[in-house]
Write a protein that binds this DNA or RNA. Structure first.
Lengths: 207, 207, 207, 207
DNA sequence: CATGAATGAGTCTTCATTCAT
DNA sequence: TATGAATGAAGACTCATTCAT
């Protein structure tokens, strides 16, 4: 049933090859580091020939950028769906923090990829000024913060500043955790940090 | 008189040449980015021959690591001296934050170097497991936090967690700031963040 | 009726496709130059798939050789027909020169193709020793010269030598003209050269 | 004596390496053809490492252009010196023709290089519009023709047209001769052509 | 016959490192 | 010590050719 349409079959095959390459990028970069990952590595990991990569991406750069973007977008979407059930914005904000860390924890190679490797190329920022991988994440965080403020759950803080604190902290501990090969218990650390941050946002006299 | 001691002259020359190379590393990396900086660039900037670099460092890697370490150590020492006059640990903690940002602001190339480029090579962490550029910074931060707790100025929080929040936040905004070519006003952002963080550490009912 | 003979249809299609490829070769090479022209370019210009090219030619080399040969043969045939009306061999010889240049002038891409690009591959001469694109041209020229001699219109010169002078000169000025993007007036130059050459072939005291 | 100056020694070594590469270019291109010659071939022929080529030339293109130019200039200079002793311009013109062919005959690989391969890259004419390898040759020929006219040795012909006839003819027969692996007797052909051309330039009633 | 996705050998170029001077 | 010419391994990318559909 699934394959009785040739057009579909072809499309799927093509899609799966592109996806295989995308996955190969993430896995390989996570393992070998951004700058030691070459086209041959990726091609081998994706089970395709070197040249095949260039059927799907114009250049190595473009391939990496696409991999970053698609991974970030996908993860953000997952998180959004997960926290969509929460009633208050504060809960959503707190859950955002939790889920982000949880997702990364379950796929440590993503931590390595996003948290450690993604910063590696100021080149990208020059060559592709529009390349702002965290932008969506940060915007969404700020939106949650504004909502929480509007709902009266947190005090009147600058949303941008708070978003940087939350994201910077998450980014840093995940990078450290990934770099140190997951030696320290992330769950514990996450809770401690979550407490402190929430405490800093709470209105006086509450709780 | 000046030239009657060859040994001294040589030693001094050597020292100054090594230093010239270290400075050249930082300046060049800051300008061209980590991965576009090659030995020839550095040698030219340091006014030495390519081969000379290898008289002072075993490899390019080692040279970069040493440059990172020495810069971090030097800056930490400067900060320590600056905040040594402060009476309370809380003040020192707050000043640490301020000075760190101030120093970086005045030397944006360091921001680029430390904040953006330093994370670039997970290789380093494998090849040179002892390479933990932030370690000293983080330890010192934790020490300040413990002192502030002991002095009763801040509530009983986990020092490690707090150090990660502070450092992660600083690291992130400086990287963003550097990456976006110093477009947004760092001073403003710093104050907002500082306020929020302090608020989160304060004891209830205080201030 | 139209479609009841599959064999014919197929043969015609095949023929027209082959011709489309041949034309595409000449046009594309004329535009992009020999070595920048690849199979994909040609296939696109001929409106066929890359693989289709290999149904009509064993290799890229063979395809180019066939294109050269067929173009040269076709043009020579055209010239022969045009000068067939002329009475004397000398007139035919002179007209040959004129028509050759005229044809090329009207299709500058051929000049580029024949005059500039055709010489590009000594490989061809090794791989395909029978590849002598000018041979037919030269032979025909020599034949005309012999006839003119027999008719007593020109003095007793070595036909081979004269054929080389005529062809070499034509070849060179057309190549220069094509390479310099048709900047200088070819008509003028042609007449001057034609005069000089005729003068050199004339019998003393004549005209 | 020759090597008692270090600076000289170094300069000579460097010069000899550059020259080795230049010679390797010409020899290798003559043997393998322009487009089948790669950097590795040249480096091997010059007894240097691939990378060494790039110490002397910015790119493969530049290397080829320099090789063309220097070879043409050198040969023209040699010819000029040889014909400088001749009294009349007509003799110089005739000798030019003779010597050009003689030089090429003695170094058939040059014929292949100049005559056959040099035309291979319309790219060059686009990328480097100033690249006109024959220009000097042609100009010098025209100068000789004008002088011969002024001296009354040849009739009043268009110097440009004549230069194209002479150069085109030489170019063509040398290319044919080189391409056919020196099968036919060049000396004979040269004399026949020389006669015809001189005849075409002579004044009526003369000789 | 026709397609065009896939292949992978081949090529230019860069650059960390060495070593003769 | 200092030099910088020389090395050659490595890597991104191209493209003629094949083959499953």
């Amino acid at each position: 049933m699934a394959y009785n349409n040739d057009s579909d079959k072809v499309k799927e095959k093509k899609k799966s090859k592109r996806e295989a390459i995308m996955n190969a990028v993430i896995m390989t970069v996570a393992q070998k580091g951004f700058h030691k990952t070459n086209i041959s590595d990726i091609a081998r990991a994706a089970n395709v020939a070197d040249g095949t990569v260039y059927l799907y991406f114009k250049s190595k750069d473009e391939m990496f950028i696409k991999a970053f973007e698609e991974l970030a977008t996908k993860k953000l979407k997952t998180i959004k769906q997960l926290i969509d059930t929460k009633q208050s914005a504060l809960e959503r904000l707190s859950s955002f923090f939790d889920y982000h860390i949880e997702i990364i924890t379950e796929n440590p190679y993503i931590a390595r990829f996003i948290g450690v490797e993604i910063r590696q190329s100021p080149d990208f920022y020059e060559k592709y000024p529009s390349y702002q991988p965290f932008k969506e994440y940060i915007s969404y965080l700020q939106q949650l913060i504004e909502e929480a403020k509007a709902e009266g759950d947190i005090r009147d803080v600058d949303a941008e500043a708070v978003s940087y604190i939350i994201f910077g902290t998450m980014d840093f501990i995940l990078a450290e955790w990934a770099m140190k090969n997951q030696e320290f218990p992330l769950e514990d650390m996450k809770n401690k940090i979550s407490d402190i941050l929430q405490f800093g946002l709470m209105k006086r006299g509450e709780k």
